[in-house]
Simulated assay, not measured.
Amino acid sequence: MIQGTFGSKGQLFFEIDLITYDGLNLPVDAMFDTGFTGFMVINKQDLDSLNWAYMGNEPLINAQREIIFDRYSGKVLLDEQEYEIPVYAGDEIIEVLLGSEWLKILPLVVNYQVDILTLG
């Protein structure tokens, strides 16, 4: 289980590691976005250092509309567990986002009153 933090506007943040093609771990803060239906979305520029394999493109639904994203096969580390997941990339993404697909395999606990935010 990983502990998260609350942003100033109520955002949900978790520190995860992106694992490069060469096996290096790069820690990043990722915002949890329940309106995004995939596992993770990232800015295309951030992919340069990761060297993840390109898998084509695919439409995904976010909170507003369906968008076509480039899809990569990526590896992330959450709570000392490595996951190989489809990662979506777009030009206009400003933060690494974790999506609602994680909720199919990991429980999310959020309690603002007692400052509890966990995933896993």
Rank of each mutant, 00 (worst) to 15 (best):
G56E: 11
K9G: 09
Q45N: 14
N111M: 04
F13V: 07
Q81G: 01
K104S: 10
Y72P: 02
Y88V: 11
D29H: 09
E80Y: 08
E95K: 14
D46V: 13
I2E: 05
D33N: 08
A30Y: 13
G74M: 10
V109P: 03
Y112P: 10
I16K: 04
D33Y: 02
L18I: 01
E80S: 15
I94R: 15
L103F: 00
I85G: 04
E84I: 04
S100W: 03
F6C: 04
L117E: 08
V87Q: 01
I85T: 09
P107E: 00
N57P: 04
I42E: 11
E66L: 13
I116M: 14
A30R: 12
I67G: 09
V28Q: 05
L98T: 10
F32R: 12
I116C: 13
I68V: 11
G23I: 00
E95M: 13
L108V: 10
E92L: 11
N43Q: 11
G56C: 05
Y83R: 03
Q45V: 12
T20E: 06
L117V: 09
V87R: 12
Q64C: 07
L98M: 14
T20W: 10
L108C: 00
V41H: 11
A30Q: 12
I67D: 05
Q45W: 06
I2Q: 12
V41R: 15
T37I: 12
T20L: 09
V76R: 01
R65I: 03
N57Y: 06
V110E: 14
L18N: 04
E15N: 10
T34E: 11
Y112A: 14
T5V: 01
I2Y: 02
I42R: 12
K75F: 01
I67R: 00
S49F: 02
D22L: 13
L98V: 06
I67M: 02
F13N: 15
D46F: 12
M55K: 14
F69H: 03
V87L: 05
V114C: 08
W102Y: 03
A30S: 03
L119T: 10
Y54C: 01
D79Q: 02
Q113I: 10
I42D: 09
S73K: 11
N111C: 06
P86N: 08
Q113Y: 05
L50P: 12
N62W: 10
S49E: 13
G7P: 07
S73F: 00
K44V: 11
T34D: 12
Y54E: 08
L119Y: 05
E82T: 14
P27N: 07
G99R: 13
G74A: 02
Y21G: 14
L98R: 10
A89N: 07
S100I: 02
M40Y: 07
